[in-house]
Design a protein around this nucleic acid. Structure first.
Lengths: 247, 247
DNA sequence: TGGATGTGCTTACGGTATATACAGTTGTCT
DNA sequence: AGACAACTGTATATACCGTAAGCACATCCA
């Protein structure tokens, strides 16, 4: 109940060290006793813990406890918790998006597939949203390869590099917002929360006419439509309009 | 350096009490001494502190210290920190979007104006992103009035309620992602971070061909183009395509 | 005036990240 | 072989955090 965990927005005190760790550019020592752990194993265990109990459950103590060692032992492998979270993100993003199945040159299909893969990762690891909500994130190779894949998928559009980047931002924004929506919905006590909100809204319906109309029309009922597909189609249509309209 | 702050994803132990507080539906007592503080004043002070030093600086001690009282004194007005953050959000969202200037019926202008207002709030209060990154957020009247304004702006499109809601999600996603990008950029030590990243990317350029090409084209240079306007136009075009294509 | 009620404070607990100093282990070099 | 340096893991300590519980006092109603 007490002592919530971190927000990770403090910058690591030594960005270079953190990046070197993420990129696996650390000289491995030969002198002392064999290390029993490794940054990757620690990150994997932490990610597993986060999958099971949420990001808040990931504390140095808990993670270390899983290995039967003390909390301070982890600091031999990881500069600090900021870097540990970055490693967790990398470990989850290791499975690069598989865009081999899409037909050559069909950029819509490629972008669609990339977005779906991305959304699946966020769905499988709900803590990813919070872990990447930090400022000035340390970006590792896996994260960059996702970015690379998206930019590659967008190259057939003929858009400029800056615009490809902008579209990427749109896509990742869509995925992340949807992830937040989904994470909100399937939590315990959801029905009571919905009931409270509905009652409040009904009591103040006059203050929110457009919202009340939307609710009456069932805008917030969990219908079968795929929200991801909808947003994706809007973005793709917008990109298409840009292509045909100006080039 | 130690003791980072919370992530607010723990649910308040009593959602009903939190909501009542947000909606100002608490019976005011007459018996005891006049309260020297109020939830709103506390939230305003906390928001000011967050504006100046970031969300991490907002602790019960710090906020209470600003009033010259002890930390525990705040718990007479606010159930816990989760609710305090929700109140902070409400206080910042109190200035509802001003859509009176847009010409009647021009839904594109209205949506554009709403998005710009929203983006300005996020720019003025960078901590808003982190404060609303929680799950199952307590939604107060101010937040709902923003939602209402967006839905109202979308009504002239003739889209269904569910689709209006989806477009709203797209818009807020755009704003939030841009806020994260902007927050990333104007931090101290940004140039060193950029240098490190560029060097790493150059060293592994073969692993990220599309990314390398984009960098070479200057995709990540801070050019003068308005990223918000770009994403907004993509979304608006996508919506327009949906309107004309299917109805 | 008395009692009820609410305010503000003090103390304390269990949690967090992590700095520092130390003990034990292991490889390399003389 | 023996010395030494490097490395691992632990124990201790600091400085925070949110907050539960209880106490002393102020204020209003009867």
């Amino acid at each position: 109940m007490a002592g919530r965990s971190d927000r990770e927005q403090d910058r690591p005190r030594d960005p270079a060290a953190g990046l070197a760790l993420l990129w696996g550019e650390q000289g491995r020592p030969t002198r002392g006793p064999k290390p029993r752990l490794s940054p990757q194993r620690i990150a994997a265990a932490a990610a597993e813990l986060a999958d099971a109990e949420g990001l808040d459950a990931v504390s140095m103590s808990r993670v270390a406890g899983g290995f039967g060692v003390s909390a301070m032992a982890l600091y031999r492998y990881v500069p600090g918790k900021t870097e540990l979270v970055a490693l967790m993100v990398e470990s989850v993003l290791a499975e690069a998006p598989d865009l081999s199945r899409v037909p050559e040159g069909d950029w819509r299909a490629a972008v669609r597939e990339w977005t779906r893969c991305c959304a699946r990762v966020y769905a499988d690891h709900p803590w990813l949203l919070g872990a990447t909500a930090m400022r000035r994130q340390l970006m590792g190779p896996c994260q960059l390869s996702w970015l690379d894949a998206a930019l590659a998928a967008l190259e057939p559009t003929g858009l400029g590099a800056a615009q490809r980047h902008q579209v990427f931002l749109l896509l990742i924004g869509l995925v992340r917002n949807l992830a937040q929506q989904l994470g909100d919905h399937d939590e315990e006590g959801s029905e009571e929360w919905d009931r409270l909100s509905a009652e409040l809204l009904a009591r103040h319906a006059d203050r929110f006419p457009a919202l009340a109309r939307a609710v009456a029309e069932g805008a917030f009922e969990p219908d079968g439509t795929d929200a991801l597909a909808f947003g994706l189609d809007r973005i793709l249509d917008g990109v298409e309009a840009l292509m045909t309209g100006r080039e």
